Amino acid sequence: MFMINHCILPAMDEIRRTALKGRGAISNESSRFERERRVLVDDGWDARGEDGREEERGPATVVGDDSARTAITRNASPDVPFDQSLNPYKGCEHACIYCFARPTHAYLGLSPGLDFETRIFRKKNAAELLERDLRAKNYVCQPLAIGANTDPYQPVERTERITRSVLEVCRDFNQPVGIITKSALVTRDLDILGPMSERGLAAVAISVTTLDRELARRMEPRASTPARRLEAVRELTAAGVPVSVLASPMIPALNDHELEAVLEAGAAAGAVGGSYIMLRLPLEIKDLFEEWLREHVPDRADRVLSLIRQARAGGLYQSEFGTRMTGTGPIAELLSRRFKLACRRLNLTGRRWDLDCTQFRPPPKAGDQLSLL
């Protein structure tokens, strides 16, 4: 079986794709910028094991290098609580089917489907670039979000350690940093995050989409289990790191009934703040998510899509500031009300990015004249 341009060999039979173990997306359609359409066909060389059964062969993860020229990305969105961010990786092996970052792989000429979760690009010189950015004469210190697009603690970080090298730069510059992740690997860096938190320079937000391990395994197959994420909240809290729990995304008729339970579990583990986002389905994610629904929860697929449309003004997505994160209409309003009441009851009122920027100081470089202060 292999991929071909649909126009070359029309006589071959197209194979229906099915879910692959450890992967979120089912298909690997071409990006919106490409002219061809990818299809999976049977070339007659079927892959069978010694027992005669067809072997399940999912695509392996391939890691390449990203040629970034700067570390910090800036935004002016009123919907997010930070103005600058850093992403050590493009693509994410966690394979969350709902990930709003999937369409960015199209800019690389790759598919937002399986390519996004199997073709990972690392920013090997992220720490070096960050140091250069922080030393710039026109740099004005403000909190730096790490992982705003793709997870900084996805599996490849265990060996690449790029996120850790970035944190070491933040520590040396007293640069306040907020981390967004759904991986328990964040606790590896407690030796950096703990001391920074004591000085008001670090905070972490842990995403807990569901407490149902089976649903999590299908929806975000290579992320830490919900129980392990909550344990990470406990470990971070014990080390003095302020943690928020993100009940995101909330998906009507799939996990939205867990909103209060997720917030309660986070509060019990020590979280001081909470947040949520209504499911977002921009660009290619709409088709990827519907395909996933019909494969994994076919009895609820139409119901879920209908409720999403009711919360998105009749469509599957709203791109306008102010509504793209929360939706509109009675369903969205009820979810917002439930969230506010739960946070008030659980005292999840801490601000996610309430960090101290006054301590920022670039350390002297080798050869610099020493200060008399």
Rank of each mutant, 00 (worst) to 15 (best):
T70W: 12
T61M: 06
S85E: 01
C92Q: 02
D65K: 12
P88Q: 10
C99A: 09
V63N: 02
G58T: 07
R57V: 03
E54R: 00
E56N: 08
R102L: 03
E55P: 00
P59D: 09
V80F: 07
R74V: 01
G58L: 03
F100H: 05
V80W: 07
V63F: 02
A68V: 15
D65F: 11
D83W: 02
F82A: 02
D65H: 12
P78E: 13
T70Q: 15
C96H: 05
G52F: 07
D66A: 14
G58F: 06
A60R: 15
A76M: 05
I97L: 12
C92K: 00
H94P: 09
H94T: 11
G91M: 02
A95Q: 07
G64N: 13
D83K: 03
A76P: 00
D79H: 08
G52I: 09
V62T: 13
G91E: 01
S77Y: 07
D65R: 13
G52T: 07
R74C: 00
V62R: 11
P78W: 13
I97C: 10
D79P: 09
G52V: 09
A101W: 01
G52H: 08
T73D: 14
K90Q: 07
G64M: 13
A101L: 04
N75V: 01
R69D: 14
R53V: 06
T73P: 02
C96G: 08
C99G: 06
Y98F: 14
C96D: 05
S85D: 04
T70R: 15
E93K: 08
A95V: 07
P59N: 05
N87D: 09
P88N: 12
R57Q: 02
A101V: 04
C99K: 03
D65W: 11
N87R: 04
A95I: 06
H94D: 12
Y89L: 09
P81G: 13
C99L: 08
F82V: 06
G52D: 08
R102N: 03
C96M: 11
V62I: 13
E54K: 00
R69H: 15
A101D: 04
C92A: 10
N87Q: 08
T73E: 14
S85L: 06
F100G: 01
R57K: 01
V80A: 05
P81V: 11
P59Y: 05
R74D: 00
D66S: 14
Y89I: 05
T73F: 06
R69E: 14
D83I: 03
V62W: 12
P78G: 13
Y89H: 08
R53S: 09
P88A: 11
T61N: 07
A95M: 10
V80P: 01
G64K: 13
C99W: 03
P81K: 12
H94E: 13
S67P: 12
A95N: 08
D83A: 13
A101C: 06
E54Y: 04
S85Y: 02
Y89N: 05
T70P: 10
H94L: 12
G52Q: 07
V80L: 09
E55L: 05
